[in-house]
């Protein structure tokens, strides 16, 4: 993803290192190399590359990771604002 980075200091990713058992599942599923295993514990190595997809939190067996997961899509967010509900894709299944 060289040259393609989105906004800094916005993501909701939180790691509770105390709970982490170092299984490495989060680092495996992250599509942007945000997480890495460092001496048997997960460490956030590139926080601003996080896209809040929620893969790490979903696959953490001890719930050490939390993130407000969702779709990074303007029309989905607009849809959420207009309907007062959660952001959701309303683009004929394209996303």
């Amino acid at each position: 993803m060289t040259g393609l980075r989105y906004l800094d200091n916005v993501v909701t990713l939180q790691l509770d290192a105390g709970k982490c058992i170092g299984c490495g599942m989060c680092a495996t599923v992250c599509p942007h190399g945000v997480l890495a295993i460092d001496s048997r514990k997960t460490r956030v190595v590139d926080r601003d590359a996080c896209i809040e997809c929620g893969a790490c939190a979903r696959n953490c067996p001890v719930a050490a990771l939390t993130v407000k997961a969702g779709v990074g899509c303007a029309s989905a967010i607009l849809h959420g604002w207009l309907t007062g509900g959660e952001p959701s894709c309303d683009c004929q299944g394209s996303c």
């Binding site: 993501v11 996080c50 990074g72 899509c73 029309s75 894709c89």
Partner: peptide, 14 residues
């Protein structure tokens, strides 16, 4: 609106 088609934008950022 192209943000939705990219694989590197977070909902918080958008």
């Amino acid at each position: 609106n192209f943000t939705g088609a990219t694989p590197f934008t977070s909902p918080s950022g958008v």
